[in-house]
């Protein structure tokens, strides 16, 4: 069993927790993920590591309440335990040699982008961050980003906070103005990562995207997390759990990944309804 050390509500649908998992805390690097199960019979879900504290043996996770499992997790409080927590899985984000980087985060993806931005800042790289949300109420981690970024732009879809529009708008403006980046690292909804990649393409800036497909074991056994890449004109299969989760944005088949991500949409919807009804009865 793994104890929940702290719990904090970041916005109405996003929660931050620290879980006691000393071995994971000692090892995890920016870009890696963990898999957890809330309880016996529970589903295994992957979540990216949002930070670690090796001294306290704490691993920070940030999750959006989207389905039955995240709903159940959100009902736990500090001091409670969850049954399983394994990691760190996947390859860390490759940051070696990067001097000037643009981080583009969207929604809860910002939680994943944050440790990457922090690590780059710690290494002395120049960090430009663009983070986007649907509206003012959903903005998270603004202060954290500000403290590790040389420049920060906050975008909201409805203009209720920061600048009005998509994350691609300020990115395009910077690239148009002749701004140079060694790399753009983008983490967020697939559709956003796809358009960040398309925006960067005319300028030839390398784009790293972080994939978060459906997964079970996360150790290279089930193959559920496969993504299709195009390399040298050939389509090849890679596994996000052992080859990723980071991939070259120009190679990823985003449309297939978006379609595969919705495989269990109907199931997830009804499972979430069931979970909500259950908790309502308990309340």
């Amino acid at each position: 069993m793994y104890e929940i050390l702290t719990k904090k509500r970041l916005n109405p649908t996003v929660t931050q927790m620290e879980i006691h998992a000393p071995l994971v805390a000692k090892k995890a690097k920016a870009g890696q993920f963990i898999i957890l199960r809330v309880d016996e019979n529970g589903e295994r879900i992957p979540l990216t590591v949002a930070g670690t504290d090796a001294v306290r043996g704490a691993v920070k996770i940030i999750f959006q309440i989207v389905g039955a499992t995240t709903h159940k997790l959100n009902c736990k409080k500090a001091g409670d335990t969850i049954s399983d927590f394994v990691g760190p899985l996947g390859e860390p984000t490759h940051l070696d040699g990067l001097k000037k980087v643009c981080i583009v985060g969207g929604g809860v993806g910002c939680a994943i982008a944050m440790p990457v931005a922090q690590e780059l800042h710690r290494r002395g790289a120049e960090v430009t961050s663009i983070i986007g949300f649907r509206n003012k109420d959903l903005v998270i981690l603004e202060e954290e980003f500000r403290s590790c970024s040389d420049r920060l732009t906050v975008m909201t879809d409805d203009g209720s906070y920061g600048e009005h529009g998509n994350v691609t708008a300020p990115l395009k403006a910077m690239l148009d103005a002749g701004e140079h980046f060694d790399c753009i690292i983008t983490i967020g909804p697939l559709i956003m990562m796809k358009f960040v990649t398309l925006t960067a393409k005319p300028f030839g800036v390398p784009v790293t995207v972080s994939m978060n497909p459906i997964m079970i074991d996360g150790t290279g056994m089930c193959g559920g997390c496969r993504v299709t890449l195009t390399q040298d004109g050939k389509r090849i299969t890679k596994f996000a759990c052992v080859d990723g989760p980071d991939f070259n944005g120009y190679e990823i088949d985003f449309d297939e990944a978006m379609s595969r991500g919705r495989m269990y949409a109907a199931f997830e919807h009804s499972a979430h309804e069931r979970a909500c009804n259950l908790f309502r009865e308990v309340d």
Partner: peptide, 22 residues
């Protein structure tokens, strides 16, 4: 054993295609 093999044919990324392991 490790990663499941796929055939490398068109359509293996469609929803409803599983490896036996999965």
């Amino acid at each position: 054993a490790g990663l499941p093999r796929f055939m490398g044919i068109d359509g293996e990324g469609l929803k409803g295609v599983y490896s036996a392991n999965e």
